[in-house]
């Protein structure tokens, strides 16, 4: 577990480092995610070396963003003021994205 956690942290560190020094408009943790994927893909690291910590983190992913959800209370007034455009945008856009993805997949899959 500890070894796999160190691996995860090292990739995160590397991602943050690249983000910081090269000023790329992609977050450090997303760079870290791409790097660990590539490292696994090109067999530079072994799956079993990173799996224990990564399974744990993915399993409890939802817990880690609860504080951000609570933080919404600070902006309740802003959301309340614009609740109509926000609701329309979120509902329509979710349905459009859902349908576009599903319909295209189904159409291409038949060929």
């Amino acid at each position: 577990m500890l070894k796999s956690l160190i691996y995860i942290f090292c990739f995160l560190f590397l991602g943050e480092l690249i983000h910081y020094f090269f000023n790329i408009p992609i977050a450090g943790n997303i760079i870290g995610m791409l790097l660990i994927f590539l490292a696994l893909f090109f067999k530079m690291i072994k799956l079993e070396d990173v799996k224990p910590a990564s399974d744990f983190l993915v399993k409890y992913l939802v817990v880690f963003f609860i504080p951000y959800g609570v933080g919404l209370m600070v902006y309740a007034n802003l959301i309340a003021e614009y609740w109509i455009p926000v609701s329309v945008a979120v509902i329509l856009s979710t349905l459009l994205s859902l349908y576009a993805t599903g319909a295209i997949y189904q159409k291409l899959d038949k060929k």
Binding site: G15, M33, I36, V58, F64
Partner: peptide, 10 residues
């Protein structure tokens, strides 16, 4: 959240 995004790569 940071490390869990890295874990999504795995």
């Amino acid at each position: 959240l940071g490390p869990s995004v890295v874990a999504l790569g795995v």
